[in-house]
Design a protein around this nucleic acid. Structure first.
Lengths: 210, 210, 210, 210
DNA sequence: GATGAATGAGAATTCATTCAT
DNA sequence: AATGAATGAATTCTCATTCAT
């Protein structure tokens, strides 16, 4: 694709026209609030400020629009940058990371995306799989890479850093994420997150610090 | 009321008639496969081998039928008995428990129920909350009680046993439950479960064993 | 049909078994309250204290049951006896009659039967026609017969007594029956009825008294 | 807003689009023929020549469509103009009025609307009340106003002109309207109407003319 | 005869999608 | 390109009716 092209003949050709973005913004809100089935194309059109017909100019059908939303969420959440500087020590780094990670998962939007994708995963396995890979597995790999560095730096001793990364990340969620997603408890407070993450860091380092 | 009772006078009055069970069995499959919205009453009727009308003889509406399914899953999963004998040592007990727990979560039905309830939790918060309490929180409490005993037995030293129980249970899920629920990986094998649970037990005991 | 017959083999053979009466009593209330379409066979069964199946033992279908109710109302309202003693003078007699007639029409049950039959008359013309003949036309004929007597007694001078009877009866309804049936005003009070009927009598006699 | 407006932006916004009219026309026939319950949205759609879905684009539900029909009938019947010139004498004027009034009530559409609204009045009291006020009470008030003028002109002597108006109008209906609405007799002929109305005028004037 | 369980046809309503303009 | 009108298939739910016991 070259730098400048002539006026687009078709909106679909234009990968990121303003209209397309407008639709995605409206659809995002509706899909994440109501889920795939709960969201209606009419509601999405209204939220996006376009006509229902226009939706079908940019997306072949409801599924395609939904998948684009998930794709976008995937990219956005996947690029959440964590400060995993391989030079920094594990206590500080893992603590900071853990807090950021839980806040990401438990912020209203974050949880909704995860819930929404989980909900549809049985009926759209590819969507679920791609989301998992790009967001959750990707985060695990980032942490694993950091752990590799700390193993090399002789701060830690870990056989399977990917498993260890996942273990740490799961234990950071303890008592927080599941109740949040089941609507059994409200969004966790900063203090609650601190307590749980600190405990997870302690457990992790007790096991893996040399 | 004597041991054998006469023919039921009303299907609704009879809390567990064969027909009611038949409907629940059919509905269970459809709801867990397709979610609340994905499941149609017609499909459920077909799966249960009854007419659509009959569904409404036993359940006032789709939501009531769904809630009965969740209730049933709740009871069934809630009463999953784990051998948490407070006399037994932590290594064996936690290892056994962890394996049983992951197998429960990751067996087809188990994951589906959790996914299905999660998916609807935003629209039916009570259903989500009750399920979380009866299944997940209940399991955490059982483990916490076991840990209390091991603390008393001076095998472990833990400040907040409920948090520790949740941490352990979450770290058992590492690399297994999330990919499973996002359909990113197939049902974990016995060997995979062993590996992850053993690692979780090691990490846990490294942190909390006196 | 002879005086005594043996125990009935079929409820239908028995024209007026207790069960049949019980059903009619329940159905009457439901039909008159809710109209033909608004009434459901389930509701009727409940009101009658019998099972839905039993309804069909005594009546072939909903229409037949409804027609029986109308038949019964017809007989009951048709046999409402008015004191139309041909010897009595018109002022008293017509006044008394008018009051009784309006009270019949405007009492909750009376209005309901009329409304219910009117409502269905387009779809069941025979039912409407028979009801009209047996109740309204019959009352008109009674009054006409009385008027004939008063004409013969030289108190009145009327060409078409049937028309005159109908005129009188309609003018008694002025400002009372229509608002009542359209739910535009509540059941008329005794005083309102007196006022209107007195006025109708006055108008009638001004026109027809010799 | 100028005299000619542009193409409608929304069917609902446009209070009187051709489609809306087309639906009302189809619905009118079906509702007046079959009553509220007897009419099905499918039948209405067929009668209107649109799809069932389109019905719901223009009217929120069956009740709203029905109420629009009643509203329209109300306006149409309410604006029936009678020549009640206060200068004209009572014999001519009341005779003309009576004939027009009975023809209005007893023309196929007229009677059906009244029957249909009466039938539903118990379940939709507001609809009944508004219809009564706008059509029947309104006509009574028009006649009462005329009578006031004739009282002032010393042609008549009436205490309660509203009651007198209602009496006259009811006696015009004698032997005509009730049999018509109960389907006991066919639409009255011109001759029948003349006879009854003339008699009603005579009775009325015998009572109230000075 | 009486019942209650079961049914299936049909009702109102929603909504993804199409299409002429 | 953008629209909004129109659709019809699918959905939930009701109810008159049947039938084995």
């Amino acid at each position: 694709m070259v730098a400048s092209h002539p006026a687009p003949l078709s909106p679909v050709g234009e990968e990121d026209s303003a209209k397309r973005r407008q639709i995605l913004d409206g659809a995002r809100k509706v899909f994440l609030d109501l889920g795939f089935d709960g969201a209606s194309m009419g509601e999405i059109a209204r939220a996006a400020g376009v006509s229902k017909g226009t939706l079908y100019v940019y997306f072949t059908d409801k599924s395609a629009l939904f998948e684009s939303i998930v794709e976008q969420e995937k990219l956005e959440q996947g690029k959440a940058v964590f400060n995993l500087d391989p030079e920094r020590d594990a206590v500080t780094t893992l603590g900071e990371f853990g807090r950021a990670y839980i806040q990401l998962l438990c912020r209203p939007g974050g949880g909704s995306a995860i819930r929404t994708v989980m909900a549809i995963a049985e009926r759209m396995p590819d969507v679920g799989k791609r989301f998992y890979e790009a967001v959750l597995a990707h985060a695990i790999r980032q942490v694993a890479t950091y752990l590799d560095a700390r193993v090399a730096a002789k701060e830690l001793e870990i056989k399977d850093t990917e498993l260890a990364a996942a273990q740490f990340m799961m234990s950071c969620q303890a008592t927080l994420f599941q109740p949040f997603i089941f609507q059994a408890k409200p969004t966790p407070t900063r203090a609650e997150i601190d307590k749980v993450v600190d405990s997870a860091v302690r457990m992790f380092l007790a096991a893996y610090r040399i």
